[in-house]
Design a protein around this nucleic acid. Sequence first.
RNA 1: GCGGGCGUGGCGAAACUGGUAGACGCAAGGGACUUAAAAUCCCUCGGCCUCGGCCAUGCGGGUUCGAUCCCCGCCGCCCGCACCA
Length: 870
Amino acid sequence: MATERYNPREAEPRWQREWAERGIFEAKNGDPRPKYYVLEMFPYPSGRIHIGHGRNYVMGDVVARFKRMKGFNVLHPMGWDAFGLPAENAAIERNSHPKIWTYENIETMKAQLKLLGLSLDWSREIATCDPSYYAEQQRIFVDLHERGLAYRKESEVNWDPVDNTVLANEQVIEGRGWRSGALVERRKLSQWFFRITEFADELLSALDELERWPDKVRLMQRNWIGRSEGLSLRFALDPATAPAGTSELEVYTTRRDTLYGASFLAIAANHPLAEALGAANPALAEFLTECRRGGTSAEAIETQEKKGFDTGLRAEHPLVPGWMLPVYVANFILMDYGTGAIFGCPAHDQRDLDFARKYGLPVKAVVLPDGEDPATFDVGDIAFDGIGHLFHSDFLDGLSIPAAKEAVTRRLEAQDLAGKPQGRRQVNFRLRDWGISRQRYWGCPIPIIHCPSCGPVAVPKADLPVLLPDDVTFDKPGNPLDRHPTWKHVACPRCGTAAVRETDTMDTFVDSSWYFARFTAAPGEPPLTREAADHWLPVDQYIGGIEHAILHLLYARFFTRALRSAGRISVAEPFAGLFTQGMIVHETYKDTAGKWLFPEEVEQRDGGAFRIGTDEPVTVGPPEKMSKSKRNVVPPEIVADTYGVDCARWFMLSDTPPERDSEWTAAGIEGAWRFTQRLWRLVGEAAELAGKPDHPLSFGPESTALRRAAHRLIAQVEEDFDRLRFNVAVARVHAFANVFGEAVAAARSAASIAPDMAFALDEAAGFLVAAVGPMVPHLAEECWTVLGRSGIAAEAAWPHVDPALLVDDEITLPIQINGKKRAEITVSASADQAAIEKAVLELDSVVRALEGRAPKKIVVVPKRIVNVVV
RNA sequence: GCGGGCGUGGCGAAACUGGUAGACGCAAGGGACUUAAAAUCCCUCGGCCUCGGCCAUGCGGGUUCGAUCCCCGCCGCCCGCACCA
């Protein structure tokens, strides 16, 4: 009997060796088959992985293996996002070197990933900290620098006082550093930037074409880019109040329709005009200082009072000569958005209203909600920002908001102020250029040399790479590169005088902005060739966490466009399909002393939880994201040893939709174990019963029914894989296993097995193995052997479905009376509507339900339902 | 505050995006095999009753022959953004 247990501990390593020896997962660039590029977001080598990290790799692996079976030349690579701060922190702690820590972790994690039986092309493995990787990144930087896409400017930056480095806006979450969690401070520094705003419009409009991206991510990016259409409008300043040499003030507004409701102008505290006025006004200067003290944290902003200071400056309303508006400095105006100045219309903007009430400024409504009486309408304390029509607005009266916006824009475009149109249409973006300078050692050096006479000069490509020096110390705070005795001192490549290297390194998000392109180069090829990149890109299916919805995914999109404009590649978008998977969560356990316990230390019985060994009661907490600190982690090694990785893979794919969080439970993994064993038994038994069958001349009803189920299984699972609905695919396999199990049981108890049934059993077993192959690849190989198939399962073709077997010749239709199901009828699939109606009306249950009444109408939806209406 | 999503048995979930609500699994209960256990197999499993029905997809309306699905109004969770003019 072939019913001995399947032993994954023996079989899994054996098949992994076999795959590696055959090299079947190594993609070839010249392969004539259609390409398919599947990629999971590459990991940061932080130490060890737990089973929670495995989910997206397993999902990607199912796709990769499935597409391989479908005949694609699949690229499924893996690498390491290896630069970053934790390595430096670890180096400080252990008095070691970031490189040592990083490469040790890579080794550990690589072994763990290999344990999962992933069909990865390890021949293309990369680590971003490898000089061969960052050398190319430096060349790209130089290319972008030449095109003005990388530039340097003095700017106020987000400073993380714990990590001692600068953060991009995207990396500040609720006023705190995304990694350290420290409250971010503002500092002024000279920084390198990537001109992502150059592509703001493209990055926004191209989102519409990313149809295989989640709507949620597209929306988040859309909001982040934050396009607004408005009017840039210059106000003439009253010469009597304006500082010398200043005659006008430019504001940006989207609500130019409400211009007749204006009651003040406000400028940012760091607006040049505010600074000029402050020079002559000590009280104002003091107010400006106070504004600068304000924190940028969410709490600080929320609780911060809206404060203003009347500068005494007066500006003339552009549409009403002689109407003078006061100019305030206000602490809520941002210098880096628009022009750093606004006009306030309190009636139709809540913030302006609060400000106006506080400083006793007029509130004049100019948009009337439809249906309101103009004589009695009053905004009170809630500004009206809804839809309505203009009133109290001269030539705009009666216009809708969009019409009024257009009318005002036309008028001000035509109106002259100091020889130029007073207003001009302007599109603004919330998106800021990407600051990439980091005052860290363990990153890609920025290939720039600062010369006292030439200024910043790019390192000539012939001199690249700028290598990180190994001999650095971490005993003092600050950047080790900066205090290295010799590294930064070089001659200016242009004039030869003594100069210094840029000691900042690049944000590690730069490293991950092009790694998918780096993978397209075959081993031995140059790191980024247009030919290879154009062949493989875009990535057909990208898989990773939702937490990268903005940061990584926006940067990678920008970088791809930047590479294209530098002539390095031809594609504009890096990822054609994106999938954001949910996390694996696990209950948490605490002992009586409040110490976290690992799941393997806890036993659950009799409705309680107890510590194994001591029997001490354990407090069970709700499922949370697996994390080392809470110890609610499951190491892959333990799962592999106990159940095998196929079992873990099966469990990870079962039950929960892949985009949702999934709970890891002991009962769940047990269930997966039972099913994998059942698969093994069923296939083994079928193989034994069927022998080596020939194709029979005809099929009886039983064998046909089994074949229908098997062919339908393949068709359905194929669709499920294409839509990444792994949980549904698993359910279909279960359902088929039930059908198949009955057929096997019937065959077992039969006196003899007819040739058609022998064939059907063998075919069904093969289809079942093919369907589960991408999910449980090791088990599939064992089954493949048992079935006596040639070759190996990983290289097998996806089964061919006979379309004739997908259509039933009889169908069962539910029958509703007035929309409620009352009966069923089985008819020939070719029965026409009249025949169905007739048959339905003759049914006992229908006759009874009609109680002698004549049906008003009968709705027959072909192949779906019959509804009799009385 | 703005934007978005989600509410289906004890639990995870399905339901061809308007057509038999609860597929499939987990847990639970009962049974078979066994000296016993494990393993395996079979049955039951949304609620209520008069065993033929009635009520059930967060709540209340609506559209439709027919609504988990579409529309309107609530309630409750979750996520993103956050002084963006």
